[in-house]
Amino acid sequence: MKILLDKLTWRRNGILVFTILVLLGISNFYGLYTNKFYFLKADNYIFPLLSLVHFLYLYVLWFKITEDELPDPKMRNLEYALYAVMIVYIFKIYDTVTILGSYSQYESHVIPATFKPVAYLSLILYGLLPILTLISFWHRKQLVGKYNFEEYNDNLNIWQ
């Protein structure tokens, strides 16, 4: 685990998460059974909208690390919102597994050849997303600091 965390720096992790979010945002509009993109379905916009929270968290994390700032309550609230968004990520893993499991039910129907490769790629990306998110939380804890605002407020001396 230590080797993985040493190789996966906060920048590499952020780039990976950003790339995965963009790929999943695009593939969220793709219909696995029909091999078409659906831009007029309102359900397809839920994941890209919720991933905006993740993009914002990546930006705040990058800013706090590069500017060597301490964590603040806004960052903590954003991280808590990201915990809720991770529930959606886990649901999307379940949804993709369910779709993959239904393949045998529709073998007699015409299913595009891209069904399995795109479904497996989506499953891998959805599976990596919560893991990389937890790694970014670990990087925040190590590089930015813990959320200990009582001690932070006690040691704040504006006269120095």
Rank of each mutant, 00 (worst) to 15 (best):
I3V: 03
I3Y: 00
L4C: 01
D6M: 08
K7C: 00
K7D: 01
L8S: 04
L8D: 00
R11F: 05
N13Q: 06
I15W: 11
I15V: 12
I15L: 13
I15G: 04
L16A: 14
F18V: 03
F18L: 13
T19H: 03
V22K: 09
L23Y: 08
I26H: 10
I26N: 10
I26Q: 11
I26G: 13
I26E: 12
Y33L: 14
T34P: 02
T34Q: 15
T34S: 15
N35C: 06
K36S: 12
F37N: 09
F39T: 11
L40M: 12
K41S: 14
D43S: 13
D43C: 02
N44W: 01
F47R: 03
P48Q: 04
S51D: 09
S51K: 00
L52I: 14
V53C: 01
L56T: 09
L56D: 00
L56Q: 02
Y59V: 05
V60M: 08
K64Q: 10
I65G: 02
D68W: 01
E69S: 10
D72P: 00
K74R: 11
M75E: 06
R76V: 09
N77I: 03
N77S: 11
L78F: 03
Y80W: 13
L82Y: 06
L82F: 04
L82W: 01
Y83S: 05
A84V: 10
A84M: 05
M86F: 04
I87C: 10
V88W: 10
V88E: 10
V88Y: 14
Y89R: 05
Y89M: 10
Y89G: 07
I93P: 00
Y94I: 13
Y94P: 00
Y94V: 13
D95Q: 07
T96S: 08
L100M: 14
G101F: 05
G101I: 06
S102E: 15
Q105K: 14
Q105F: 15
Y106I: 05
V110D: 13
V110I: 13
P112E: 09
T114D: 14
F115S: 09
F115M: 07
K116M: 15
P117Q: 10
V118D: 08
V118A: 11
A119R: 06
A119M: 05
Y120Q: 07
L121W: 11
S122Y: 04
L123M: 11
I124A: 14
I124K: 03
L125M: 15
Y126P: 08
Y126I: 07
L128Q: 05
P130A: 06
P130G: 04
P130R: 03
T133A: 11
L134K: 03
I135F: 09
I135Y: 07
I135H: 03
S136Y: 00
S136Q: 12
H139E: 03
H139F: 02
R140E: 13
K141P: 02
Q142R: 12
Q142S: 06
L143T: 07
V144N: 02
V144G: 02
K146L: 12
K146T: 13
N148T: 13
F149N: 14
F149K: 12
E150T: 14
Y152M: 15
Y152A: 15
N153A: 14
N155A: 10
L156C: 04
N157Y: 09
Q160I: 11
